[in-house]
Design a protein around this nucleic acid. Structure first.
Length: 509
RNA sequence: CGGGGCGUAGCUUAGCCUGGUAGAGCGCGUGGUUUGGGACCACGAGGCCGGAGGUUCGAAUCCUCUCGCCCCGACCA
């Protein structure tokens, strides 16, 4: 007996639980013994490596260099920028001691007692603006040292109340870009450029359409002058912030004394930016593309693009089948897809065929290819695509498949993006009245029913108005979107004041 | 930190009310039967019932404390 779906419950039944089961079913990560900290398993980490590799190319291409800064930040550094300090105050892990004393207990066990209290505690970086700022202050003397374009791949720690694998963990992996510029215009250009890099990466590589825009004051990064965001809609129609880029003005330059002598022979504070994406992208990817059978990976980011599954019904043909699989894998690997050699594997494990097949379905491999004895004599292969039903497999000639494989992958990539766009557009209405707004976000059915989406509203309210709506309906302004399609005359649905642009309201992760 | 719930084999759990020192399914191992499919049969390994005290002749079960986890709130990439 097979269950109707590989993942229980289904998305419609219980989306948060579905998400957890998908992560588990795909063997991507698990909760560790340290609360809030996950173990990223090879399949999840492989995805992260691909994200890193492809983003890193974009960073380098836009003139950035990688460097690495300390994990531990002196407490006093965090105090330098008031808003920043306040913003991160409630989620910092603090290191207070630098050694342990082993104390033998009566029962023979050993207790480790912290000793050597530090005169100044360290904070495990929740983000590195302050310590990188201090380095920048040393490195920058003249306008000739600018722009300074640095990125770091690192882990950070934010003590979270309610962790969820990939989406919100106390420790997570990310990249943080930090740059310093001579002028405000240049820095703003940089913040916009990286915002754009993120938007394109999500669209072109992760097949995730996003709404790029700016955060309101209420949602801004602590200490930033402007925060730009890319907001994605996942399948329960909530918004998720998938990446941010900040124009920091001179706030951090003043806090860290990042000064330079300008062309005018005067001292100036530099203009800085920072920008980042994290392992949250993996959670976003799962929630955007996954179905009731598990993860669906866009080919351009999948650690394995083609999984070959030998079908070995009879022992006497097993060897021949395995050889045929290896031969096909070798041929495919000599081809390329999206600028890199095709990633192809053969799953030779001697497991019941169905079990193996379902494992790769749950992991989201874009193409599964089955080869059995019959295929060898027919020179055929059975091709199954992850964006179609698990039972849906097409038997084509091996030569045809070798010729078409790139096109099939590209077709999957495109179909995932189209699907995601269709879902978003179907749930992104322009609403005009408060009554419509409330009806849109009202739960149809106690809690489990999926409702709402992105409400495009005219807005001219205050942070207090925003706060009130957030408290009452758990709906916030996700961004003030860029782009002409959002620009139109109207009046604010709360205050009635004139508005020139619609903003995106949604529930969020 | 507030309000609710839960800790029994790798996982999901029965047993707890009405004390008599553990059962199941999945998974795992071995052997066999199957074979374009998450199959079946047999046998087997695996648990000091989160921890510490207490009540009792006897505690997974009752009491107290403690630790951890989950859900709901405030915070967040």
């Amino acid at each position: 007996m097979s269950t109707p779906t590989a993942i229980t419950p289904t998305r419609a039944e219980d989306f948060p639980e579905w998400y957890q089961q998908v992560v588990r079913g795909a063997d991507m990560a698990e909760n560790s013994e340290v609360r809030g900290c996950m173990v990223i398993k090879p399949w999840g980490y492989g995805l992260w490596e691909n994200i890193q590799r492809q983003l890193d190319v974009k960073f380098k291409a836009t003139g950035h260099q990688n460097a690495y800064f300390p994990l531990l930040i002196p407490l006093s550094y965090l105090e330098k920028e008031a808003q920043h300090a306040e913003g991160f105050a409630t989620e910092c892990a603090v290191v207070t001691h630098h050694r342990l004393e082993a104390v033998k207990q009566d029962d023979g066990t050993v207790k480790m007692i912290p000793k050597g209290e530090l005169t100044e505690p360290f904070v495990i970086r929740p983000t590195s603006e302050t310590i990188i700022g201090a380095a920048f202050a040393r490195w920058i003397q003249s306008y000739r040292d600018l722009p300074l374009l640095i990125n770091q791949w690192a882990n950070v720690m934010r003590w979270e109340m309610r962790p969820r694998l990939f989406l919100r963990t106390s420790e997570f992996l990310w990249q943080e870009g930090h740059t310093a510029h001579e002028t405000a215009e240049e820095a703003m250009e940089e913040a916009n450029l990286m915002h754009d890099v993120y938007e394109k990466f999500l669209r072109n590589i992760l097949a995730i359409p996003v709404i790029p825009g700016e955060k309101t004051e209420r949602e801004r990064f602590p200490g930033a002058a402007n925060t730009f965001t890319v907001e994605a809609m996942v399948q329960d129609r909530k918004a998720i912030q998938a990446g941010t880029s900040h124009f920091l003005g001179q706030n951090f330059a003043k806090a860290a004394n990042i000064e330079f002598v300008g062309r005018d022979n005067q001292r100036h504070h530099a203009w800085t930016t920072s920008w980042g994406v994290s392992t949250r992208l993996i959670g976003t990817l799962i929630m955007v593309h996954g179905d009731d059978d598990g993860v669906i990976l866009p080919p351009r980011i999948a650690p394995v693009q083609v999984m070959i599954l030998p079908v070995t019904p009879k022992p006497d043909t097993r060897e021949a089948v395995l050889d045929a699989c290896e031969a096909l894998a070798k041929t495919l690997r000599s081809q390329s897809y999206h600028g890199a050699p095709l990633s192809v594997q053969v799953d030779k494990r001697d497991l019941p065929g169905g079990q193996r097949n379902w494992e790769w379905i749950k992991k989201g491999v874009p193409i599964r290819v089955e080869i059995g004895p019959r295929d060898i004599s027919n020179r055929s292969v059975a091709v199954a695509r992850r964006d179609r039903s698990p039972k849906d497999k097409e038997i084509i000639s091996k030569e045809q498949f070798i010729k078409d494989v790139e096109d099939i992958l590209e077709d999957i990539q495109n179909s995932l993006l189209s699907r995601a766009i269709a879902l978003r557009d179907a749930n992104m209405p322009k609403l005009n009245s408060e009554a419509e707004f409330r009806a849109f976000f009202a739960s149809k059915d106690e809690d489990k029913e999926i409702s709402g989406g992105f409400a495009l509203m005219h807005w001219a309210g205050s942070s207090e108005d925003e706060d009130r709506i957030a408290k009452e309906l758990k709906v916030t302004i996700r961004c003030i979107p860029k782009g002409d399609e959002f620009a139109e005359e109207g009046s604010c649905f709360i205050t009635g004041k004139p508005s020139k642009r619609r903003v995106v309201f949604a529930k969020s992760y």
